[in-house]
Simulated assay, not measured.
Amino acid sequence: MKVVLASARRKTARARVVVKEGKGRVFINGVPLEILEPEVVRLKIMEPILLAGDLVKNIDIHAEARGGGIMGQASAIRTAIARAILEWSGSEELKKLYLAYDRHLLVEDPRQAEPKKPHGRSARAKRQKSYR
């Protein structure tokens, strides 16, 4: 039985995906994708699956995400799913399709939130200085 493992990161979220032969079921943190809430997250995660089309009909996808927020996890999961499906199929056409649709389906976004500094409200903002 063929099993493919893939992982991805987004901000502080980490995602792992296992793809194996099955009936086309998709589980995100143990929850079926069809009933995953909120809908924005569900649609974001479904993008690589919808683009792959019939390739996904005979595989099961199990995704787990840890850390970060809900959208960071969704982005990490979608990248990991796209990578896993690509490795499973080995299709060069699918790779071109993913890259043309959205480069972040295969390439991670390395940006991270800058840490807060002392004497300020956020990473860059400081208290205004008054001379009068």
Results as ranks from 00 to 15, higher is better:
Glu64Gln: 14
Met46Glu: 14
Gly68Ser: 07
Glu37Phe: 10
Val19Cys: 12
Thr79Val: 05
Arg10Ile: 01
Lys11Trp: 06
Ala65Leu: 08
Lys2Ser: 10
Arg25His: 00
Glu64Cys: 06
Leu50Ala: 11
Ile35Gln: 09
Glu39Tyr: 05
Leu50Asn: 13
Val3Glu: 15
Lys2Arg: 14
Ala8Asn: 01
Lys11Glu: 10
Gly30Thr: 07
Ser7Tyr: 08
Lys23Ile: 11
Arg10Phe: 09
Ala76Lys: 03
Phe27Lys: 07
Ala65Lys: 01
Ala15Met: 06
Gly53Arg: 05
Ser7Asp: 11
Ala8Asp: 07
Ile59Arg: 05
Gln73Met: 07
Ile77Leu: 06
Gly69Phe: 15
Ile61Lys: 01
Ile28Ser: 05
Leu51Cys: 03
Ala13Leu: 08
Lys20Gly: 12
Val40Gln: 12
Leu50His: 12
Arg16Met: 10
Gly53Ile: 12
Arg9Tyr: 07
Leu51Arg: 03
Thr79Asp: 01
Ile35Trp: 03
Ala76Ser: 04
Arg66Glu: 15
Val19Lys: 04
Ser7Thr: 09
Gln73Lys: 06
Arg14Asn: 14
Arg78His: 02
Leu50Met: 11
Val17Cys: 11
Arg25Ala: 00
Lys44Tyr: 13
Val31Gln: 05
Leu36His: 02
Arg25Val: 00
Ala8His: 01
Ala52Trp: 10
Ala15Ser: 11
Leu43Gln: 12
Lys44Trp: 13
Gly69Tyr: 15
Val26Tyr: 05
Leu50Val: 13
Ile45Phe: 02
Ser75Phe: 13
Thr12His: 14
Ala74Cys: 07
Gly53Ser: 09
Thr12Leu: 15
Lys11Phe: 08
Thr12Asp: 15
Ile59Trp: 09
Asp60Tyr: 09
Arg9Cys: 03
Leu50Cys: 04
Pro38Phe: 08
Phe27Gln: 08
Glu64Met: 12
Arg16Leu: 11
Lys11His: 11
Gly53Phe: 11
Thr12Ile: 10
Ile77Trp: 10
Arg66Val: 15
Phe27Ser: 04
Val3Ile: 14
Pro38Tyr: 05
Val26Gln: 02
Leu33Glu: 06
Asn29Asp: 13
Arg66His: 14
Ala6Gln: 04
Leu50Trp: 15
Arg9Thr: 09
Leu50Gly: 03
Ile77Pro: 01
Lys11Asp: 10
Ala76Asn: 01
Lys44Pro: 00
Asp54Phe: 10
Pro32Lys: 02
Leu43Tyr: 11
Lys23His: 12
Ala76Thr: 01
Lys20Met: 15
Lys57His: 13
Leu5Phe: 15
Ile61Glu: 07
Arg9Gly: 00
Leu43Pro: 00
His62Phe: 15
Glu37Val: 08
Gly69Glu: 11
Glu47Ala: 13
Ile77Cys: 03
Asn58Cys: 00
Arg10Trp: 02
Gly53Met: 12
Val17Phe: 12
Ile45Val: 05
Glu39Met: 02
Arg14Ser: 12
His62Trp: 13
Lys57Pro: 02
Gly67Lys: 08
Arg66Tyr: 14
Lys44Leu: 15
Gly67Thr: 04
Ile35Leu: 10
Asp54His: 05
Ile77Ala: 03
Gly72Asn: 05
Val31Asn: 01
Met71Ile: 11
Met71Phe: 12
Glu21Val: 07
Val17Gln: 14
Arg66Asp: 13
